[in-house]
Design a protein around this nucleic acid. Sequence first.
DNA 1: CTAACATATGAACAATTATTCAAATGTAGG
DNA 2: CCTACATTTGAATAATTGTTCATATGTTAG
Lengths: 119, 119
Amino acid sequence: MTTAGEDCCEVQCIHEDKVKLARRERLAEDTVTALADIFKTLGDATRLRILSALMRQELCVCDLAAVIEMSDSAVSHQLRVLRSQKLVKFRREGKVVYYSLADDHVRTLFAQGLEHVNE
Amino acid sequence: MTTAGEDCCEVQCIHEDKVKLARRERLAEDTVTALADIFKTLGDATRLRILSALMRQELCVCDLAAVIEMSDSAVSHQLRVLRSQKLVKFRREGKVVYYSLADDHVRTLFAQGLEHVNE
DNA sequence: CTAACATATGAACAATTATTCAAATGTAGG
DNA sequence: CCTACATTTGAATAATTGTTCATATGTTAG
């Protein structure tokens, strides 16, 4: 019956040795947060549809909106989130802004996720 | 100025050809949802801490709670989410339930995420 | 400068979700 | 059977988040 915040003195650990080992290997707070943010960003159907559409070619906001059948505004909002996590990059050409995948990690993560799903 | 729900007739697509191509390659609705669910599950600091602790060894609920310094209840709730996405598996030994990573996809996804973070 | 258009942004609302607390399982030992 | 303990569950609250609508940038053409 452990309660949050308690330290090891009062805790009824079943396996103190294992716990100590695991504690020593904990990830830094920042790392965990950053990692969670990446996955959180990938954890939305709209954003995945956007990324999926960008797999083959770069697309502008208007095109993306047409492909996934959502408003330009909604797409733009989500692109901002994707940008903030460096999952997409963009280039401007006149009035038009073209988005594309930021790097190959995105492809790999996407592919790995699909593999997990298809079993 | 596209609005949600419109079909291609009224939409002002900049590049009709690209849009048609991208539309043909869209993922199935179910696939996108399943993929989003996996990433959503990975997109939480508490759950990542749990998975990280399970990287080296199996641990029971009580131990996990001690490692990540949260209540047994909170951990149990999150383990249920991880189980529902088949990211962890468990075995019972008397009163104690031991959790471990479900398969190597979890490790790979985790590692890929870390790589993206560490740049 | 003005009009037209692509994109971005802000505020608001609805929906989802994580944690807590209390209580319920289920298991082992006396 | 009763107690102790590990884990699970349910309800409630608080916080986060996606979409919409209206409006604001910023760029190009006339």
